[in-house]
Amino acid sequence: MKEKLSFAERLKRAGSRGDFASVLMLLPAVFLLAVISIYPFCWLFRYIFYDYNGFTAYYIGFKNFTRMFQDAIFWRSVLHTFEYAVMKLVIIIPLSLLLAVLLNQKIKGSGIFRGIYFMPTVISSAVYSLIFGFIFAVYNGVLNAYLQKLGMIHSPIDWLGSASIVMISIIIVAVWGGFGNYMILFMSGLSSISEEIYESCKMDGANGVQSFFYITLPMLSPVLKVILMLAITTALKDYESILVLTNGGPNSRSEVMFTYIYKLIFGSQTTPQIGYATVLSIMAALIIGVITAVYMYLARKLDDVV
C-alpha cells in the first residue's frame, strides 16, 4: 500500500527530484508555443463563420464550409499536394540515406562532399527557386542547352510552363533543396551504430549490401521513423518555392493547398478572403494531422511486427 504524503512532503519530494527546475526550464518554450502557435491557431476560429476582408467581418453562417466542399480548385490542390509529397518522399529519403551511408565510409574527401550536399539547406528557398527559374528557362536556359548539346532532346522543354512536366520540375527543386538536411540527420543516426557490430558482421562473411539491410537499416529504424515523419509533414506544407517557380500554374497544375490559401489572403487580384482561407487552413491542418497520425500508428505497428 502506498504511503499517503502530505502536500508539504510532496512539495519537498518534488523539489529534491528537481521537478521545479524542469518546470522552470520548460516555461519559456511553453510560453512561446502558446503565444506564437496556439493562440493564433485559436484566434483563427473566430473567423470561420465570417467573410472577413481584414477590416470588416460579415457573418455568413456555414457558407465558408459549403463553399469549401464545392471548391474544385481546393480539392484539386489537395490531390496535387499528395502527388507532390509522395513523389518528393520517394526520391528524397532513399537518396539522402544512400548518400549518408556512402559518406559515412572513411573515404577521402567525404567531408567536402558532406559540405557541398548540405549547402542547399542553408540557402533560402526563394533564392534557389529564382536560380532554378533561370536554369529551367526555355529560351537560353542552362538545362535545355546541356540536354540539347548531349543530344538528349531536339527542342527545348518548357519545364515550368507545361502542365505535364511542371510537377517533375518543382520536385527536382524540392529534392535539391532538402536532401542535404535529411542526409545529415541520417548520418547522425549512423554514427550511433557501433563499429564493432559491422566488424563482427564482416567476420561472419556479410557483404556491404547484406550489412546495410540486416544491420544498418534495422538499427537506424528509430531515427528513420522520426525523419520520415518530419519529411512527410514538411512535404505536405511546402509552398514557398512553388510560389516563386510557378505561382501554382500553369492552369493551377502545381497549385498545392498552401499556395491556394496564401493567394486567397495575399493575392492582389481579389479582395482578401480571410474567413474562407481560415476554414481551408483548418482543413489543411486536419489533413496533415490525420496523415501524420496514420503514419505514427503504422510505424508503431511495424515496430511490433519487426
Binding site: G133, Y139, G161
Partner: peptide, 20 residues
C-alpha cells in the same frame, strides 16, 4: 518566344533588350 509565359516580366524585358 518559347517558355516566355512561365518567365517573370524582367526576364522578358531583358530578352527584348537583347533582340530575342
Amino acid at each position: 518566344l518559347p517558355g516566355s509565359v512561365s518567365q517573370g516580366v524582367d526576364a522578358m524585358r531583358a530578352q527584348f533588350a537583347e533582340g530575342a
